[in-house]
Amino acid sequence: MPAFVIGYDISDPRRLQRVHREMCRHASPLEYSIFLLVGSDGAKDRCLAEIAALIKAAEDDVRCYTLPARGFQGRVGRASLPEGIVWTGLPAAIS
């Protein structure tokens, strides 16, 4: 199943909250404005259509990137979880 990283930069705090709530309905948050969506192209398209209805295209920025099926996964910097804690919320397809 395909996986997508969706990120956004929303200029208005009220729109930002609305977009964040809507994104939480479709995908798993990795950071406040970065989400992981594992699903079909149709699921991605539905998510982006919902977000497009909430933003102002001239002021806000939403980007979606398809992750390669067998791409490199790594992390640089401080771990987000304490040593020994594993987040099992990631779908098996990418964990």
Rank of each mutant, 00 (worst) to 15 (best):
P68A: 14
V86K: 09
I55F: 13
A53Q: 11
R14E: 07
A79C: 05
K56Y: 09
R25K: 15
E59P: 01
C47D: 02
I94M: 11
L30R: 01
P29Q: 00
G74F: 08
Q17P: 00
I55L: 12
V62M: 07
G42P: 00
P13I: 08
S28T: 14
D12S: 14
S33M: 05
A69R: 13
A79M: 03
S11Q: 13
L16F: 11
G39Q: 09
E22P: 00
G71N: 04
L36R: 07
R15V: 08
F72C: 08
R15P: 07
P2F: 12
A43R: 15
D41M: 10
A3T: 03
D41T: 07
A58G: 03
G84N: 10
S28K: 14
D9K: 02
V86I: 10
V19D: 06
D12T: 11
F4C: 03
T66M: 11
L30Y: 00
C24Q: 15
A69W: 01
G71E: 04
S11K: 11
P91D: 15
C64F: 10
V19T: 06
I55T: 15
D61N: 15
F4K: 02
L16I: 02
S95N: 13
E83P: 08
V76L: 13
V62K: 01
I10T: 04
R18H: 06
G42T: 12
G74E: 01
R25P: 00
M1N: 09
A69N: 12
L54S: 13
E59A: 14
A52M: 03
Y8A: 04
I6N: 08
K44E: 15
S11R: 12
A57M: 04
A43C: 10
A3K: 00
S95Q: 13
A53D: 15
L36T: 02
P91L: 11
E59H: 14
L30G: 01
A93R: 12
L16W: 01
A27M: 05
I85L: 09
V5T: 09
L36I: 06
P13N: 09
D61V: 12
S95A: 14
L16D: 04
G71Y: 11
V76Q: 07
R46H: 05
G89I: 14
G77I: 08
P13M: 04
R78P: 00
G7I: 03
V62Q: 07
A53V: 04
A52F: 08
C24L: 15
M1K: 12
L36Q: 06
T88D: 10
V62A: 10
Q17Y: 07
I85G: 02
D45C: 03
S95D: 13
F72K: 13
A27G: 06
D12G: 07
S40K: 05
A79S: 09
R78S: 01
L67D: 12
G71V: 10
Y8R: 04
E50N: 13
